[in-house]
């Protein structure tokens, strides 16, 4: 078969696995939370039901072309992010299209969906959407700074921006993982990770009680379904990125599931403990200690 076609098929397989994993994790994490609170909690397959339900809605409205393609941008952003990353280290099957660009492509491509979604939400003309976007963008700029410093520090450490090379350099036991070899960078990145996941305490962007769920407030039916698909894929793609950069990547799917799940739980734990930050607080917070850690990480890796 045509090698490109094979690649596409393997990429689709990756996408399928990740989508299901993402949907399941959306059910399982609340389930765990519920069990901790001695509740039954939602069924673990609830996310599937919600998506099917939303696609089965019979009416849908649109505010205009940008509103309509906003979710398309969003999902493209999510899938693309996954596609540009090597998922399983050492496997030819699950390298996706990582041959087409390095870490920078991945970092910048994150914004593709964010920007498209923001534009779509804004076309609805709903002030809450605009407020949500304003908050989201403000917060994003803030946590990206320590994140970048951390990533740069890793790049200095490994002298490459190639994700596969970074993963390769971490093989050979957990003592080789970046989080052990470059703890400062890892700290900066993991703090930024909290912001990137958009969970408490950094979830004022959605703020259901105040600005009804922020940007997607006007989205419904199939359009919301597309967004939900992205909600399953995009966080997992980010988790995979962090896993690759900090935790030695994964050589098999079970390892990937385990590692990403544990990384995910880090944001969950923080989220259940801390209350919500206001945007100006979180901006200042990210530009405080995490930023200093990031700078320190760069200085340490560069000079020592």
């Amino acid at each position: 078969m045509d090698p490109i076609l094979v690649k596409i098929l393997y990429a689709l397989l990756t996408l399928f696995i990740v989508l299901n994993y993402g949907l399941l994790i959306q059910g399982i994490v609340p389930k765990i939370g519920a069990r901790v609170g001695r509740r039954h909690g939602i069924p673990f397959y609830q996310a599937y039901l919600d998506i099917i339900k939303n696609y089965s809605k019979r009416t849908r409205v649109t505010h205009g072309i940008m509103f309509y393609i906003g979710p398309v941008f969003r999902l493209t952003g999510g899938i693309g992010l996954l596609m540009f990353m090597p998922v399983i280290f050492g496997s030819n099957m699950f390298q996706n299209f990582s041959f087409t660009g390095d870490l920078l492509l991945v970092l910048y491509f994150q914004f593709f969906g964010v920007l498209g979604m923001a534009l779509g939400a804004a076309e609805s003309g709903h002030p809450h959407s605009a407020i949500g976007v304003s908050r989201g963008l403000s917060q994003t700029t803030a946590f990206e700074f320590p994140l970048t410093l951390g990533v740069l520090s890793l790049a200095v450490q490994y002298q490459t921006l190639n994700i596969s090379d970074i993963v390769a350099a971490q093989q050979g036991g957990f003592m080789h993982w970046s989080i052990m070899t470059n703890p400062l960078a890892a700290a900066a990145m993991l703090i930024a990770f909290l912001g990137a996941m958009g969970r408490a305490p950094f979830d004022v962007v959605l703020a259901p009680q105040e600005i009804p769920i922020g940007p997607p407030t006007e989205y419904q039916s199939g359009l919301l379904g597309v967004l939900q698909l992205n909600r399953a894929i995009f966080p997992i793609a980010k988790l995979i990125l962090f896993m690759n950069l900090l935790f030695g990547g994964a050589t098999s799917w079970p390892e990937l599931f385990l590692k990403t799940f544990l990384i995910y739980m880090w944001s969950v734990f923080v989220g259940v403990v801390f209350p919500r930050f206001r945007v100006d607080h979180s901006v200042r917070w990210f530009l405080g200690v995490p930023l200093l850690i990031g700078i320190l990480a760069i200085i340490v890796t560069k000079f020592f």
């Binding site: 409205v61 259901p208 009804p212 769920i213 407030t217 006007e218 989205y219 419904q220 919301l224």
Partner: peptide, 8 residues
């Protein structure tokens, strides 16, 4: 859900 658009 906080918005009628997404409620059943």
């Amino acid at each position: 859900r906080p918005t009628p658009r997404q409620s059943d």
